[in-house]
Design a protein around this nucleic acid. Structure first.
Lengths: 237, 237
DNA sequence: GCTGTTGGAAACCTTCACTTTCTAGCTCAA
DNA sequence: TTGAGCTAGAAAGTGAAGGTTTCCAACAGC
């Protein structure tokens, strides 16, 4: 197919496709002449992956390129995961290294307590320390015990994640799936958590207090609504 | 304290503080003259919250403003959660409404199966549908059953989240904590999941095949003794 | 042959989150 | 009381990111 077909099939403007080609996110097609280059189904799939990683996953073009280039190398699953993990943006302010390092023991303790085997160089150690520092500064102390409970939840998610990969034989398909599972299931989990938060706060209606609602009418900025199906506290577990 | 003190205490440049004032993220200080305005501890705390939400949570200035303005209204916990949820960016391409709506039944089924009570207008319904659409297009079908397992994990997280809020009496503190718990615990959970993924893939070493590592860094800390099963949550399986 | 598409490069655009610059007034130590 | 150094507030500028537009010559396909 030609570039216009690719554009039509994926809903991506031709200009954008050219941009991705230029940036090396999308491999070049098969050039048949000065004005004709053909693309295949793999380009369609790749383009969808690019859009999902950038638009949904919020990855930058550079991070996406790193991850895609890793996906194209047939790595061991473990290496694949590491490459994907390392390519991920971990916003850690260089100016705050000291304050962040102060949280490192708590991270080490957690990993030890969970019995997790994690490379000493994993960027996620620092990322976790940075988040804990933020929380501490804001007066929110996550106790060891509570952190462990979240860690167990994360472990359960990770087991499900890896279950999805376990049966895949083909290396390249595995690599692509690893990237998808790691990166695109994260927004899924995040949104499920928010939905669950809403339900859970309905369930705990009693705790919500008695009051009628103050001035909620003008919800901030965007979409507002009246409280639709408000069930109230009559709900069992 | 004056603006320079505020700057020093939080590590935020004066210019940036002025910018936040201008954008309405930070309430104005107490003006004592044409060139002297005093700020208090609440400004320090607010500034830290702004930095955490933007730098760590990745929120835009506009979303942060929405959330902060909600935090300043003493709402019911339930309303607070809703306002925070609604202010969140949910990247849903308007051009794809049709394809997204096609996934709505699956979302409804999930909510019904989980017994979750969620407002019909919740933006997260569409957000979830959009993610499922992406995954489907990429050839990753999340079966109902598997989706439910993730949903249970999310529910467990949500229960922990709300546990943190339950005992808070003061409305304004509660509002702030709700925002923190919803928004800043998300990166924590995400990073814990990644750490757990690494551990889990080590655990499944057999599946990883035999191979030595291609080109990527040091082998992950192999000879560690730290995996004491003590104290911490014992792993089953 | 005529109309429309393509490849490739370069210039351009928009948004975001700050930064810089400027003016004029004020504070405070010497 | 003087002058070096804040300070408020507005306006303009910056740099990165992620495209988008504009060209043009070379085809493609009817």
């Amino acid at each position: 197919m030609r570039i216009s077909d690719l554009s039509r099939l994926t809903g991506t403007p031709v200009g954008t496709i050219k941009y991705y080609l230029r940036e090396g996110l999308l491999p070049p097609g098969r050039a048949l002449g000065a004005t004709l280059t053909l693309y295949g189904d793999e380009h369609v799939q790749r383009l969808r992956l690019i859009r999902a990683l950038t638009a949904r996953g919020g990855l930058s073009i550079a991070a996406t390129r790193d991850i895609l280039s890793a996906v194209d190398r047939p790595l061991e699953p473990l290496d694949m995961l590491r490459v994907v993990h390392y390519a991920l943006p971990t916003p850690v302010d260089a100016a705050e290294t000291d304050a962040i390092d102060a949280q490192a023991p708590q991270v080490d303790d957690l990993l030890a307590a969970m019995g997790w085997e994690v490379s000493a160089e994993s960027p996620h150690r620092k990322a976790l320390a940075a988040s804990l520092m933020d929380l501490a500064r804001l007066g929110v102390e996550l106790g060891t015990e509570e952190l462990q409970r979240y860690a167990e939840i994360a472990a359960a998610a990770a087991r499900l994640d890896l279950d999805r990969l376990e049966h895949i034989e083909d290396r390249l398909r595995l690599a692509e799936h690893a990237a998808i599972v790691v990166l695109l299931l994260e927004p899924v989990l995040a949104v499920l958590r928010r939905l669950a938060q809403e339900d859970e706060s309905h369930r705990r209606g009693a705790w919500a207090g008695t009051g009628e609602v103050a001035g909620v009418g003008e919800a901030a900025g965007s979409g507002e609504d009246a409280r639709a199906g408000e069930g109230g506290p009559e709900r069992e577990r």
